[in-house]
Design a protein around this nucleic acid. Structure first.
Length: 566
RNA sequence: UCGGGGAUCGGCUAAAGGUAAGCUGCCUGACUUUGAAUCAGGUGACGAGGGUUCGAAUCCUUCUCCCCGAGCCA
């Protein structure tokens, strides 16, 4: 294909361009095999979702496979908790890596053999320099390094020493195995990089079997090679490592995949660093990796995001080498778009204001038909009870409203969704002057929401019947950070200075229409005129419903207000 | 300072020497029993200079700015 497009007419991202070129050149016998290689040292976040969609997506598009391989070469940071969460998250996202459980740690024996081969080829040596000395010998960005005094040990001595390293005869950090490349290389990764270090730590899979562990650079490429990966797709920061990736494979004379680097995802109002996300959890700024404010997959999931929305998000943002930052709103749009199609509509009042319909008979209830989802006729209808005492949203009433306020005010008439036209006659206040109740009349002739006399109302508001309402707690989430780029702090402090103090608002006195009484954890709804909400999977129970707001609806009224406020 | 990358509407991406396109945002308007959704229109870009060419976002060149790199992390 040379016109830059695929069969659907969509354009190719640059990775796919490279893959198609390789396919056309017969470079890997027409195979495409990718891999997603997380280190199990934290939970996956939306940035990983980009990589997952890319790797699994490219494999699928060209009839290949994508492996899930854990890059578990540093036992001090890794655990099975993370392994399991990563598998869960990938499955939930909708991807399948087959039955294989792949771990770099499964290749430790093979990797060790590779290292011995390198020694035998005089391309690696055991070095006794301390960590500090190693750094000092390495030189700087602008000055060449110096050869280690241990660089010219004999093959025999190196083989023996390396075996002793493995056998546990030396203390942690006392020796390393290094590649013999070029201490004067302008690429610091090539200045005799460390291949193995001595580290007594219990590995989550190999236990105490090993006391030496391979470095990323010596494990990753060879693991790719063993799995016969064709395209090893990673992020930009590994671009400087590619010469070393290639060097190892060439030195070993083994199958040689191609590494391609793309720009990782950055998003406004959040951070993507695993280390910093871990700090947020540890320091108690969030309730856990699954806090709905976290950019983690599990957090977004609990927040109410759908796998479809995350996948379509990854599709829209594209893949390139330019270091870009995606607006948070793009993510929000992706979930709105999906939920608009599938989420059942219900009425819920978050901040209740009592309304008494003075001309509606006491103790009576009228059942009204409401559409479950106007975007999906199959979803059918349900009945909602209307009675003398109702609740409406406090925001839907103003005592002294401007002309363009289409909701309730003294003397104004609006439509109560799916019910009647209602007119406000009287405003009741408490001693402090706060509005506590509205006394209104309804027009029985407008049942269902339209007037036989053809009169129109400008606004439609949601409501719930007071006697029939179910109570719930609703958690409203806002950006975790108050600045677009939390990493850039004004006072020179850390990103934590930019935490948004109002990122969570908990409303405990919400009233929902009765159909919600049986809502199950994980069920998603649109609360009409408010947003999309999900029953919390952790804290919600039958006698204590808890909802998380996934995202608000677009709100052009709020936008107008904001514009005026400026 | 050395090496490796990068720069196209406000944001994100296409254009593979031949009409700078799409999505999103923003602004209008239509419709509306969700100020939602939907629909229509508008706004708006090749980092700068030089060169090659009939023709350059694309090739060459100089410059500017940004990112990555001196872990026994990945």
């Amino acid at each position: 294909m040379s016109d830059g497009s695929d069969s659907d007419g969509g354009s190719l991202n640059f990775v796919e361009v490279h893959v198609e070129k390789d396919l056309a050149d017969g470079r890997f016998d027409g195979r495409v095999q990718t891999r997603f290689p997380p280190e199990p040292n934290g939970y996956l976040h939306i940035g990983h979702a980009k990589s997952i969609c890319l790797n699994f997506g490219v494999a699928k598009k060209y009839g290949g496979k994508c492996n899930l391989r854990f890059d578990d070469t540093n036992p001090t940071k890794e655990s099975t908790e993370y392994v399991e969460s990563i598998q869960d998250d990938i499955r939930w996202l909708g991807f399948d890596w087959g039955e294989e459980q792949l771990f770099a740690s499964d290749y430790f024996e093979q990797l060790y053999a590779f290292a011995v081969q390198l020694i035998e080829k005089e391309k690696a040596y055991v070095c006794d320099l301390t960590a500090e000395d190693t750094r000092e010998y390495r030189g700087t960005l602008t000055t060449a390094g110096r050869n280690s005094p241990y660089r010219d040990r004999s093959v025999e001595e190196n083989v023996e020493l390396f075996a002793s390293m493995r056998a546990g005869e030396f203390p942690d950090g006392s020796r390393t195995l290094r590649a013999r490349i070029d201490m004067a290389s302008p690429n610091l990764n090539l200045r005799d990089p460390v291949l193995y270090r001595i580290m007594r730590a219990t590995h989550h899979r190999t236990g105490d079997e090993w006391c030496i562990y391979p470095m990323y650079d010596f494990a990753h490429g060879q693991s790719d090679s063993i799995e016969r990966i064709t395209h090893s797709i990673c992020t930009l920061e590994f671009e400087n490592h590619r010469p070393l990736y290639d060097w190892c494979l060439d030195a070993l004379e083994i199958y040689h995949p191609r590494q391609i680097e793309f720009a990782r995802l950055n998003m406004t109002y959040t951070i993507m660093s695993k280390r910093k996300l871990l700090e947020l959890v540890r320091d108690g700024h969030v309730t856990g990796w699954n806090d709905p404010r976290m950019p983690t997959i599990i957090g977004l999931r609990r927040r109410g995001y759908t796998p479809e929305s995350l996948r379509s998000f990854c599709e829209t943002i594209g893949v390139a080498k330019f270091n870009s930052t995606i607006e948070r709103g793009v993510l929000e749009n992706s979930v709105r778009e999906h939920l608009n199609k599938v989420a059942p509509r219900v009425m819920a009042v978050l901040r209740p204001l009592k309304v008494v319909i003075t001309n509606f008979p006491e103790g009576e209830t009228e059942l009204l038909d409401a559409v479950n989802n106007p975007e999906d006729p199959q979803a059918g209808t349900r009945q909602v009870p209307f009675s003398r005492e109702l609740y409406i949203e406090r925001d839907d009433f103003m005592e002294d409203p401007p002309k363009k306020f289409f909701r309730l005010g003294p003397g104004r008439e609006v439509r109560f969704r799916y019910a009647f036209f209602v007119k406000c006659n009287e405003v009741v206040k408490d001693e402090s002057g706060e509005v506590v109740e509205l006394r209104c009349t309804y027009d029985p002739a407008t049942r269902g929401g339209s007037a036989p006399d053809g009169r129109k109302v400008k606004g439609t508001i949601h409501w719930v019947s007071a006697a029939d309402a179910v109570s719930a707690e609703v958690r409203l989430y806002d950006h975790l950070f108050r600045t677009e780029n939390p990493e850039a702090s004004e006072e020179g402090g850390g990103y934590q200075e930019n935490l948004n103090p109002t990122s969570l608002e908990t409303l405990s006195d919400c009233r929902l229409e009765p159909s919600l009484a049986v809502a199950e954890p994980g069920q998603r709804f649109q609360f009409e005129r408010l947003g999309y909400f999900i029953v919390d999977s952790v804290d919600s129970s039958a006698d204590g419903l808890v909802f998380n707001r996934t995202v608000t609806l677009r709100d052009s009224w709020a936008k107008i207000q904001r514009r005026k406020g400026k």
